[in-house]
């Protein structure tokens, strides 16, 4: 099971972390990946400056908006690239 953890800490919250979380949840459903990818919230990932911080399988990405979220999802989870 792969994981997407969206930081919902103080800084990331103010930068719109819930919108990013919602985007990942929608994409997960859209791609029918509920059993393969776990989308969760997280506390401060200690990268506040680059927030919204999103940890995918432990690697931290900076995802400032929905578009970046979509692009990241496509890059890491499109069917071809799923191991």
């Amino acid at each position: 099971m792969r994981t997407i953890e969206v930081c919902l800490g103080s800084s990331c919250f103010l930068k719109g972390a819930y919108a990013v979380l919602d985007t990942f949840v929608a994409l997960q459903r859209q791609h029918g990946l509920e059993d393969d990818v776990r989308v969760a919230g997280a506390f401060c990932q200690e990268h506040c400056r680059e927030g919204v911080s999103v940890a995918v399988d432990g690697t931290i990405y900076s995802v400032p908006d929905k578009d970046t979220a979509r692009a990241l999802f496509t890059r890491l989870f499109s069917t071809e690239s799923t191991p």
């Binding site: 800490g9 103080s10 919250f13 969760a40 919230g41 506390f43």
Partner: peptide
């Protein structure tokens, strides 16, 4: 992180066994 509480105008609460309430800070 406890996402069962639907409150979008502040960060979500958390859970630690034995602690009655875990929340984000200043907000």
């Amino acid at each position: 992180v406890d996402l069962s509480v639907d409150a979008r105008d502040m960060p979500p609460p958390g859970k630690i066994a034995g602690i009655d309430l875990v929340t984000e800070g200043v907000i």
